[in-house]
Design a binder for these strands. Structure first.
Lengths: 338, 338
DNA sequence: CCTGGCACTCTCGACCGGTGAGTGCCAGTC
DNA sequence: GACTGGCACTCACCGGTCGAGAGTGCCAGG
């Protein structure tokens, strides 16, 4: 077990390193932080911390740098979440309130998060799985061709073309529309398949095929769109750490373009509270030198999607976590209002 | 006026430089290309080309590098557009055909273009200005709150919340929906304001305010969404030119995140045919060391939007132009079918 | 007008020694 | 037993030097 002072030394190392981006030595530490022991003592502590794997030296006789394990300890036990200042919070709220639609909310959130944290921001569109149906619309485009529009309570809209096996009349369509909506509006997506199961039977034989086709497309849409979309921004911030560069930035950019990877990343985060994955805790190899801070957000109690930032392991964790949490809250509020 | 051989030398320089990314010298040129004169002669030609401003040396006694002006001449007079191979074309078509909706078409196009050119791809969503209305839907969410959904012939869907000044009945709403659609379906966006102008007058006094509000929101949507959205991809390709890098990549990433800049960039391109903007021809300062190849695409004869790629000035112009043109064509086809 | 030859320039990589930050260890002190 | 001061040691970094190589410009001759 590490003594109180050693933890203090680790905290100081993390803070200094995050600030300067340079390995930190024993002397500098005692000078910059009010540590009441001599450099020699700190050296002993550092040696101990190194034995335990919390810090490491890039090369013999250089300062120490925190390891992933060191950051982990820092985040878990040494650092709090730094709340944003009032003006910052007000700015967030104002900026988000001006959004005109869901796309705008998401895109503003991304920009905001990127700007606040000066890192790469990732925002997932509100999920459909936990959403409920607000309305299903059917439009006749041609005698045997129609468009299915699905509107969710989070304001998301999905559309699909449907080619019908047989022409359908406006009146039958109106009938279908009405019955469909009376059954599914307000229901969760996961409930829909069960609720519409027997619907084709109640139609005339001539329309039954079309009804089945429409329902099949609807169910398909529910499933397909469950695989979420997301928006990223602030990639220019990656260039701020020009140290180990091109080597690192390449795989990160590649990983960011693979939405699947990101979605998995966000998905892995445990539900309540914020998740911080540090360095090699991220399995994707492009992201092993980055940390991901993510959190769920939602219009009510439940999280409907997640957002977060991707940055170097040497990030300002308290600040980043504060920004992520604050943004998530305000986005939730905005969604709840609309 | 430059002699035939000097143009040939310029072409060779551009090709070699694009291939190797290194300044090309007189000796190497005569070896790699079947130029039937000696290096000394080529040197004289190079001196002439340099006087004219087509090439430059990074430092005294290094090889030559094409200038923006040199690339310009190359693109205008020396290079054709390299058509894609049959397998490539088939791959494009197959890949795009699997798209399920407009978002998917755009996102597939971006990925495709990025992969083919190994550069950053930019695809604009089909514009609404030239689009026609396919359907307007109105949904009553609460007594005095409704949702307006606008569906275009390009498959795009926009939604807006409308807060009504007074409650409106389902029947009045149905009436409005029917009249509205009968007037605007099939019409161009630009025509809509004129067509709905006198609509409020035909309603009862109690509903008139609501009708006006709905129409105002509709018109607003038409205007707002005229400012286009776009999707970019392949940013990881920026890291391929690690030479002069971190310096250059930063402003480029920043420019790419500013959609306004990109839209302006695409917008500047002259309508018919492909546009190539080289280096400083791009006014935005972040992009002065890049070239942009763009072209319009559309479902019919008219271009509804543009797409293109952003890469270093030292790009393979014929190949890039070929890929851009091919992709634009196939996307046009896909849009026409849906 | 083209060509071979020649002197010149300039970048690049290797090598080298001095400097300084930082370390580990040890003996001494509280 | 914990802390401290001192000391020898290790490297990364910086600046300068040097040789190699590639490329150029120019000139005289075919």
């Amino acid at each position: 077990m590490l003594s109180e002072r050693r933890l203090e030394v680790l905290r100081a190392i993390v803070q200094d390193y995050v600030g300067t981006q340079e390995p930190v030595g024993s002397k500098a530490l005692t000078e910059r932080h009010n540590i009441q022991v001599s450099p020699a003592t700190v050296r002993n502590d550092m040696a101990a911390l190194e034995d335990e794997g919390y810090i490491a030296q890039p090369h013999t006789s250089a300062g120490r740098v925190p390891t992933d394990k060191g950051y982990r300890l820092f985040v878990d036990r040494l650092a709090g979440v730094k709340p944003l200042s009032k003006p910052e919070r007000r700015a967030i709220q104002n900026f988000l309130e001006d959004a005109v639609d869901l796309d705008d909310v998401v895109s503003r959130t991304v920009r905001l998060l990127a700007q606040l944290t000066r890192q790469v921001a990732v925002v997932q569109y509100p999920s459909l799985t936990r959403s409920t149906v607000r309305h299903v619309e059917l439009l006749l485009l041609a005698p045997a061709r129609l468009m299915l529009v699905l509107i969710t309570d989070t304001g998301r809209v999905e559309q699909r073309m449907v080619d019908c096996p047989a022409p359908i009349s406006e009146s039958s369509l109106a009938d279908l529309r009405a019955r469909l909506n009376s059954r599914v509006v307000g229901e969760r997506f996961s409930e829909v398949p069960r609720l519409v199961q027997d619907l084709p039977e109640s139609f005339d034989a001539e329309d039954r095929g079309t009804v089945s086709t429409v329902l099949a497309t609807l169910l398909e849409t529910l499933v397909e769109e469950t695989e979420e979309r997301l928006m990223i921004g602030g990639t220019a911030n990656l260039t701020r750490f020009v140290h180990d560069f091109p080597l690192t930035i390449r795989p990160v950019l590649e990983a960011l373009e693979e939405q699947v990877v990101l979605l998995k990343l966000l998905g892995e985060a445990k539900e309540p509270g914020m998740t911080v994955r540090i360095g090699h805790e991220n399995v994707h190899e492009g992201l092993t030198s980055t940390s991901v801070v993510s959190v769920g957000y939602g219009s009510g109690d439940e999280a409907v999607a997640k957002l977060g930032v991707v940055g170097p392991t040497r990030m300002d964790y308290p600040g980043t976590m504060g920004a992520v949490r604050a943004v998530a809250r305000y986005v939730g509020q905005i969604l709840a209002e609309s």
